[in-house]
Design a protein around this nucleic acid. Structure first.
Lengths: 126, 126
DNA sequence: GCCCACAGGGAAAAATTTTTCCCTGCCACC
DNA sequence: GGTGGCAGGGAAAAATTTTTCCCTGTGGGC
């Protein structure tokens, strides 16, 4: 386990929210589970681009925060499904808000990045 | 300048939104500007914990995305103020949503992190 | 026995972000 | 001339996150 050297500032609600959803692949994982893709192997199949190890780490982190919980069926070999806790469910509309904002403005942002010249004032149409 | 080796996936609105707000101190910076703390030196004074260099980098990044723009007064020495663009303003309610969610659930999340035992099913009251 | 799918994690490397240190230049004040 | 506030950035170090590689164990099918 990695041990932080600089303590985190987590008083602020925004900082907490960003810690929870901020991992590189967490949003995609949450979207999978929201669509019913709940088993680790199924998530791995959907997210070919991402190594299973990483997905497992994110799942564990989300479980640790209480966003997801693990349903472990007493079969052999054990079958596992991840589900949202109530707090996890409350996160979904927040993610939808972010997604909507991003989709609305992504062309604007991409265009700005392309044409950016430090110091130049640019007023692109939104 | 750092040059990425792995290309970013920025089709998804959520990914774009997280790229824009995801830096370590960006939310705080945006909050400063929202409260009228607009000059670099004023932001530096408010954010004692953070090295000026970092704040400058975040400011530049937000300017590059078109979230902020720079008003440079033709004085000498030049006076600079950062302001929100229209797109930047549209981000504020989104940040407020995140902040509210985080404040509502941060105790829950902190408690979960403390008591977390892998594999243990826990159903804390929200 | 061998190979497959399944769930999972340790250790180290690589990539990325954050931080520190120190530099530029402008002007004002004493 | 020295000191201070202002705006800003290069280079390297440190911290953190992501990734790769390889390992554990279970059971099923052939």
């Amino acid at each position: 386990m990695y041990e932080r050297k600089i303590p985190e500032l987590l008083d602020c609600g925004l900082a907490v929210a960003l810690k929870v959803i901020g991992g590189k692949w967490k949003a995609w994982i949450l979207d999978c589970i929201n669509r019913g893709v709940a088993r680790p192997s199924a998530i791995h199949r959907e997210m070919q681009e991402v190594a299973p190890r990483i997905i497992n780490m994110h799942l564990k982190e989300l479980e640790e925060y209480g966003i997801l919980y693990k349903e472990v069926y007493a079969e052999s070999p054990a079958r596992v499904e991840y589900r949202f806790t109530e707090v996890g469910k409350s996160l979904l509309p927040v993610l939808a808000t972010l997604e909507t904002w991003g989709n609305t403005h992504k062309e604007f942002i991409h265009r700005n990045i392309e044409i950016y010249q430090p110091g130049t004032c640019r007023f692109l149409p939104q």
